[in-house]
Simulated assay, not measured.
Amino acid sequence: MTFPITRNRRLRRSTALRSMVRENRLHIEDLIYPIFVTHGHNVREEIPSMPSVYHLSMDQLKVEIEEVMALGIKSVLVFGVPNYKDAVGSSAYDDDEIVQQAIKAIKIWAPELVVVADTCLCQFTDHGHCGVVHLDQETQIATIDNDQSLQLLVKTAISQAKAGADIIAPSNMMDGFVAAIRQGLDEAGYEDIAIMSYSVKYASAFYGPFRDAAHSAPQFGDRKTYQMDPANALEALREADSDVAEGADFLMVKPALAYLDIVRTLKDQFDLPIVAYNVSAEYSMVKAASSNGWVDEKAIVLETLLSMKRAGASIIITYHAKDVAKWLKED
Rank of each mutant, 00 (worst) to 15 (best):
Y283L: 11
I193S: 00
S242M: 15
A163G: 03
T38P: 09
D323I: 03
R13C: 12
G131D: 00
E138Y: 14
A70S: 10
E46M: 11
F177C: 15
T143V: 13
K224I: 06
Y259T: 12
E297F: 05
E246W: 14
H134G: 10
M69R: 14
A289N: 09
D243A: 08
A258V: 14
S284M: 01
K107Y: 02
Y190H: 10
V279E: 01
A213E: 07
I106D: 00
R223G: 02
D86Y: 08
V63Q: 15
E187Q: 11
E297G: 10
M20Q: 12
L257M: 15
V263G: 04
D249H: 07
D268I: 01
P82W: 03
M308D: 11
K298G: 10
I168N: 04
S149L: 11
G128I: 02
E235I: 10
K104R: 15
K155N: 06
Y84K: 07
V263D: 02
G293S: 09
L121R: 04
D94S: 12
E191A: 15
V88G: 05
K224H: 07
L150P: 03
A179F: 04
I315C: 09
D30Q: 13
W294N: 14
L31H: 00
A256R: 02
N278P: 06
A92S: 07
I35W: 05
K62G: 10
A256S: 07
E330R: 09
A87H: 08
G293D: 12
D192V: 13
S307Q: 11
A163D: 08
L257N: 10
V99C: 11
E282H: 08
A163F: 08
W327S: 10
T6W: 05
I181R: 00
E282K: 01
H215V: 15
G208R: 07
M173S: 03
T304C: 13
Q140H: 15
E297V: 02
G247T: 06
V78P: 00
A313V: 04
G312N: 02
R18N: 08
F79Q: 00
D95R: 15
V154P: 06
D323Y: 14
I158V: 03
